[in-house]
């Protein structure tokens, strides 16, 4: 077993507070480069990424993203290229493009962790407002924002739920 990979998975956390230290361009590019290694259905490239480092742009994104608790020093917005989706004849109800947003997100979060950064995903935002703020091309829709920065020493508490199941409780081995 590859302990380093398992260790990275187990130590990654959602980071909700960052320091004011900027994210290095080399770190950001290293994270972005990893997105292409995420699994995508049929290896079709249906996603676009908007990388944001401008402080006024980051502030505007946060204003229209109720789920963005953190003040990121950089952000990667994962978008679905719907004209490309339609060009492949994928039906509107097919969840594939959204599933691949998830795999891209997971890969970006781990890449950030590996690059020495903190990261946190945000899905609670106005798609309309973010697309307008970023000037996205027609048909390219933002679906998830990965906030990046250097983790602050103090973090807000994680969301707590009572009586959450252990992994063994949610796994069915073989046929039920």
């Amino acid at each position: 077993m590859n302990d380093a990979v398992l260790q990275a998975i187990r130590t990654r956390r959602v980071v909700r507070a960052f320091t004011q230290d900027p994210v290095g361009r080399d770190q950001l590019e290293a994270v972005l480069d990893c997105a292409r290694h995420a699994p995508h259905a049929g290896n079709r490239r249906l996603h676009r990424y908007a990388a944001v480092t401008s402080p006024p742009l980051l502030r505007a994104l946060r204003m229209v993203s109720p789920g963005m608790l953190q003040r990121p020093m950089a952000a990667i917005v994962v978008c679905v290229d719907w004209p490309q989706v339609h060009a492949y004849g994928i039906s509107p109800g097919n969840p594939g493009p959204y599933i691949d947003v998830g795999t891209a997100c997971a890969t970006l979060l781990l890449a950030a962790h590996g690059a020495g950064l903190g990261a946190g995903p945000v899905t609670s935002f106005s798609r309309t407002a973010v697309a307008t703020i970023l000037g996205l091309p027609q048909g390219v829709a933002p679906e998830l924002i990965v906030c990046l920065g250097h983790p602050a020493a103090e973090q807000p508490p994680a969301m707590r739920r009572r009586g959450g199941p252990a992994w063994q409780d949610v796994v069915q081995w073989e046929r039920g």
Binding site: R62, M63, V64, S65, P66, S124, F125, S126, T128, A129
Partner: peptide
């Protein structure tokens, strides 16, 4: 004021699609 206004308006929109438990939190 603008930041807060934007937060409230967009939170109203996101709440249409999200878990009810998020409303008091927002």
């Amino acid at each position: 004021a603008l930041e807060l206004l934007a937060y409230l308006v967009t939170a109203a929109r996101t709440q249409l699609d999200e878990a009810a438990e998020y409303a008091p939190m927002r």
